[in-house]
């Protein structure tokens, strides 16, 4: 029991003030490494504040003092007992090592995401083959409702004039819209991945229906020239969104593990953040390509150039994502 509270507070306050100073310093300089002496002093101050809190806890009326000490001990606890490493962010290292390593480490979820999209694509193509009247339902975009041959003729005649006055605006719209939608797919992983699978399947359905429509109308080359330059980056980015969603869904469900749900989700947070960052990076590039390159068709840009560019980009993307061997997991 503390008999003379005033004397106790007077004696301890300098130590609390010193702890506050050290905390402010650490909070403002998170990258600063402490010397052994500084660590010893900091830990001593933390233990002293903790001991004071234990002594003050039975004094029910001392609510303000208790809250002050709780805040002090809580902040010091965060600095002392935090074991997760926060290395300084280096953009080049993140692009060349962290993204491909994370992609490879979690490639199972990318494959599942790809399968959901491919099944959707097969469904979309099959549905259109069985009932061409369902085209308006399968393709909710007005510019896809006309016959592919008609669209190709129009595009060749316009020579990209319709878009040339608003390329920058169109590009910005594509970037922001696609990033929002793909991050939403990732966020839907919180539904145990189920709604993400539905969205991936639906995207696949539209893609499959469009491909079937153009190929059966004899416009396969136009389709490849139109979709490959940006689709070779945009579609993998959406699949990576699905990869993150399924990774999150698996962590929430937690098959074959004894870890708590909170522990499982906590362990995947850095990987989820990396995948979200990769999505942003890829979709910014895809937005530029789609607006400034994909929308120009023959005779402005020959199909061979567009298809060659798109194919090379697809190969390079997967060389980049698969080239780095992931480190052994701890």
């Amino acid at each position: 029991m503390i008999v003379d509270l005033q004397r106790f507070v007077t004696a301890e306050r300098p130590h609390w003030t010193r702890l506050e100073e050290r905390l402010l310093f650490l909070e403002r300089n998170p990258d600063r490494t402490l010397s052994i002496g500084e660590i010893e002093e900091f830990y001593m101050l933390y233990e002293r504040a903790g001991a004071a809190l234990v002594k003050i806890q039975p004094l029910q009326a001392e609510g303000d003092l208790r809250r002050y000490l709780e805040s002090l001990v809580g902040r010091a606890y965060a600095e002392i007992h935090e074991t997760r490493q926060t290395a300084r962010f280096r953009f080049r290292h993140w692009v060349w090592h962290t993204i491909p390593e994370t992609f490879r480490r979690r490639i199972l979820y990318f494959k599942l995401s790809l399968i959901a999209t491919l099944v959707g694509a097969a469904f979309g193509a099959g549905a259109l083959a069985l009932s061409y009247e369902s085209k308006d339902v399968l393709m909710p975009f007005s510019h896809l409702h006309q016959k592919p041959g008609q669209r190709v003729a129009t595009e060749m005649e316009e020579r990209g004039k319709g878009i040339s006055a608003a390329r920058g605006r169109f590009s910005a719209h594509l970037m922001t819209h696609n990033i929002r939608v793909t991050l939403f797919v990732l966020a839907l992983g919180v539904t145990f991945g189920l709604l993400s699978i539905v969205v991936l399947f639906y995207n696949g359905t539209i893609l499959g229906a469009v491909c079937y429509d153009y190929i059966t109308d004899g416009q396969g080359v136009f389709l490849a020239g139109w979709l490959l330059p940006h689709g070779s980056v945009e579609i993998p980015a959406i699949l990576i969104g699905g990869q993150g969603a399924l990774l999150l869904g698996h962590a929430l469900i937690g098959w074959n593990t004894r870890e708590s749900r909170a522990d499982r989700v906590r362990s995947i947070l850095p990987d989820l953040t990396t995948l979200a960052g990769a999505i942003g990076l890829l979709l910014v590039w895809a937005g530029i390509i789609e607006s400034f390159f994909s929308q120009y068709h023959e005779p402005v840009i020959p199909y061979a150039v567009k298809i060659g560019f798109g194919s090379a980009q697809l190969v390079l993307l997967f060389v980049y994502l698969l080239r780095v061997k992931p480190r052994e997991r701890m």
Partner: peptide, 22 residues
Amino acid sequence: ADARGGRLQPSQVILRNILRAV
């Protein structure tokens, strides 16, 4: 704040804001 009393991590800040969409 971190739910376990630890230091708030960048990945936590980013993901809680991405999940805002839901």
